[in-house]
Design a protein around this nucleic acid. Structure first.
Lengths: 138, 138
DNA sequence: TCTTGAACCTCTAGTCACTAGAGATTGTAG
DNA sequence: CTACAATCTCTAGTGACTAGAGGTTCAAGA
């Protein structure tokens, strides 16, 4: 059994975030000492690692809740879990696509400027003001 | 002179968002009719287009405020504007890098599942629980 | 001129996923 | 036994909006 601080150290999840996850129902309510402090065991550590990993992968709290519910009802099909992962994947791909367009435009914008003064028609500001300069939609 | 709704239509920025931008100091306080409704002209339209474009590119409200301040003091060097754009660009590149790693892992995860049931050791859940499965850091 | 109803106004509260701080209590090392 | 770090609960703040309540104004048609 270890404290919330120890759990935090082991999982790299901040203490207030752990309490927040508990409040959100991602973590079961922890056991308490006689003095009301939370104590955790291996199971708690594993569940928090799961949550942390899923958050790192960009899953929302809500999606993680579904995943956890699934874990707690192993009779159900795994399809839902796959669906959640697949939808997450398409989200990620969409984001990559958008960001690449932005990268292209930002590269163009930040290259164009000679640093001589805004009055000399700064390319950065002009580019942002005028969408016509863009080579792609966004 | 046109109304906030018309401005919204032309810039594709929602009405409450326009009011929010005004409150945040991104837009100057609009002129008002005798009945207290906002009226805008070409200058307002251009500034809002600028803001919208910058937001689309992922610039924060704060960054946009700096950019606007720069526009209002054309005596200053353009370097700051370039700096802001360059830092935005490196943010974007960092995000792309991270997302590509996630894409890889999510692809691996969502391929592994046969949909036969969570009890059969669902690959999605197992992968999320155990970081060791990852082929890369994150 | 009057009426209708869409568009406008302000204000407060909610969203997501935390983060920060106050003020009180508990656990533990020396 | 004493310090003091760590914990507790609670409230409020973050960013960039979004939603809703309840009231007012504008503009077009009769």
């Amino acid at each position: 059994m270890f404290s919330i601080g120890e759990l935090s150290r082991r999982t790299k999840v901040k203490v207030p975030t752990i309490r927040y996850y508990e409040e959100m129902g991602l973590l079961a309510e922890a056991e308490r000492t006689s003095g009301n402090q939370r104590r955790y065991d291996k199971a708690g550590l594993e569940r928090l690692s799961f949550i942390r990993h899923a958050r790192d992968l960009g899953f929302s709290i809500e999606a993680i809740l579904s995943l956890i519910e699934l874990q707690d009802h192993p009779d159900r099909s795994c399809e839902t879990a796959t669906d959640i992962a697949v939808s997450q994947l398409s989200d990620v791909r969409e984001k990559i696509k958008r960001l690449k367009l932005l990268e292209k435009e930002l590269t163009r914008i930040s290259k164009g400027c000679d640093g001589l003064g805004v009055s000399e028609d700064c390319y950065v500001l002009a580019s942002l003001a005028d969408h016509e300069h863009c080579e792609n939609e966004h």
